[in-house]
Design a protein around this nucleic acid. Structure first.
Lengths: 228, 228, 228, 228
DNA sequence: CATGAATGAGAGTTCATTCAT
DNA sequence: GATGAATGAACTCTCATTCAT
């Protein structure tokens, strides 16, 4: 079927070389493309999830928003759970970025503790869906669909987001153990306030969650400054 | 078995009376039976829910455990939502009972604050599923499937469970406003610790939620005693 | 168990007689009661059907309105179909009564034809649900759940309702065959207008069904008067 | 099979073009296939409906006949109602085709009125289920499950089927208003005869609906010819 | 005759996932 | 990699009818 070559180099060799080069560049491009497309799917998923909530975010919905067909999604994510895992990972990156930004050009330990803690709290206050995300893969408060490895990685990023506060507390003179305890309690207080607030349970007590957080944080910093 | 009547009342009247009595007692018995069966369904639902979690607890599953067919459930509950509503109501009753019990024979305000708050915390610490229940009907942190009336009733029962702590704080000298704020913050702290603990997020910081709660409560009582 | 008699006639005989009398009167009363209760059920069924339509009229709904339990309905009617059969029979009685009433004190054949035909048409125009009833037991235009005997009885009552018109037409001089044909055509015209009107298909042609009926009837009477 | 390109366009561009063409042709083929499959589902639905009637034609039944699973049907139709909507639309197309065909090569107004009216009548006489279809989506004679837009579209197609008769009557000299009235009355007469005939109510009067239709149509044409 | 709990079959609909192309 | 039709199991809910009491 191949017509006789009239070229100096054999057509076959020529084409092979071209194909190799093409294959390389194509592989690279494909990888880049794949990354971008994965991103696109993730963006669609986040948009759907933030707009419709957990239940109504179906794979069909995500696919539609991403401009793909359902089947295509499975090229990028093995399951719906994995989509949510990726979403959560991304959310934690944004959280860390926010905490980092809040500290820019600030050296005073008290200030650093205050700013980082507030950044953490505000991130979830302003983006309740991100909090949902954090609790999603746990159904009835039990892990599900989360590989231990992924779980640990996510936990590490969460720790990272609280690390600046912990460091600042130590800088204020609190021993390591107490700093950890205080940060954990602060974390719990934040989560508690946010959950209660989002479920409408806090208005029940006619209290604004933000005020309560401020008060709590103030007391904590007092304790820290008093070496206690 | 019935001896001939020597009464003025005619046989017919007699029988009518007997029938009425029979009808009455039957109605009573039926009502009692219905109550018991409703209970049985509820027990099955709770068991299923505690074992399988929200998602996997289907009406089929509940029916099977209760020894009924699906259709029969709908004699007792108009919808799945109603089942959960009943489950939650019941849970809140148990919570209140527990708080009440913890105060029996205790008059010292500090003691009362400590005991009632601890009872509240322990109830949910020991029965994590009841906490889930409390947050059910909220999907993606938004209310759903809850009539406003029922929601308010449930909220009231939750408030009731925290009222003794509030009263005790006021008895310790805290003004009403501050007592409310402290109780709300305490509530948030409890919920935060419990949620974090049940999702495995607290071990992350190598902290026992129980210790943290104790510490928090201690600080709160210090504040109250210092009039502050 | 029976205490010794101190009476002249044996207690046993006495009671037997009394019981017989009681049984008789009770049977009568029961029969009357049964009839009344059947009526009550039927009234409830009609009310439900007229208010909710075919689909939403469940046995439960009927029972509730009649003040009975579901099971009790089956003492009076063997099936839901039978309820509808009875409802239809009753409807046809009302139709006949209306036609009869329309003729009271009227002897002129033209008048009689006009009045009886109009009474027929108006009955169904004013009570569309009765027309539904007439077509109910036919599903997809095929008889169902109707015993041939009942079907024939119902047909006979329908014929009865049209008989006065037929007689009047013959009185006007139309031969029997033609009178029958005209009555049938008139019947068809009525049903067609009513069905189209009830389904909103007639307004489509911007025509009031009542006017069209009047026109048709006028032409028919003209034909009859012209001996044709 | 593809000979090496001697063109200026690069292999990549070539392949892209090929892929585009492939994508295009595949899209076309898919669309065609989808259309055919939708047709197949519709055929199955019509068969089921014609055989079993409205009530017993379930989505499961349709799926089985079409050789699909239930879920697959929902790729083609969003709901059961939509299936019926499509069925009705299709039925009206066939009706219009039939009317159109009946007029081919016929110019005489009387003939045209006669033929188009008879075609209309015969269509439903021969296909009683199509009449059912026309009254479906009306439950208890009330519209249901029909979007106003679809309803209007269907009404328009029905009007279309009667338009030729209307035009012919006007051509015969009838003023527009009277032509409309006559067509409506004719429509009603047809529907009435058909409904009565299909429910076995006409045989009751020992009259063939076809004869009655002929007579009615004859009288109508007489009226038209007499300018009246 | 009356009860009303229970049945059991079935309805329409949804959706994560698979797989031949 | 992408398609999108198809699966299949599951979901909640409904209802005429039955039957032990």
């Amino acid at each position: 079927m191949v017509p006789p070559s009239t070229d100096r180099r054999s057509d076959t060799a020529d084409r092979a070389a071209t194909e190799a080069a093409t294959a390389d560049s194509r592989a690279l491009r494909n990888q880049a493309l794949a990354g971008m497309r994965r991103r696109a799917v993730l963006d669609a998923a986040r948009a759907a999830f933030f707009e419709l909530g957990m239940d109504k975010t179906t794979m069909r919905e995500i696919a539609q928003r991403a401009g793909y067909t359902v089947g295509a999604l499975y090229s990028y994510f093995a399951s719906k759970q994995e989509v949510y895992g990726a979403l959560l990972a991304e959310s934690l990156e944004r959280l860390n970025a926010r905490v980092r930004r809040s500290l820019q050009g600030c050296t005073d330990p008290t200030q650093r503790a205050h700013r980082s803690a507030t950044a953490f709290f505000d991130f979830y206050r302003e983006n309740p869906r991100d909090l949902d995300l954090g609790f999603y893969l746990f159904q009835g408060m039990k892990p599900r669909g989360l590989t231990p490895a992924l779980n640990e990685a996510l936990n590490a990023r969460l720790r990272d987001a609280l690390q600046p506060t912990r460091d600042a507390l130590q800088a204020l003179g609190l021993p390591a153990g107490q700093a950890l305890a205080e940060v954990t309690a602060l974390f719990a207080q934040s989560v508690g306030l946010l959950v209660l607030s989002h479920t409408g349970r806090i208005r029940m007590f006619e209290q604004a969650s933000q005020d309560l957080f401020e008060t709590y944080l103030g007391q904590l910093l007092d304790r820290a400054r008093n070496r206690r």
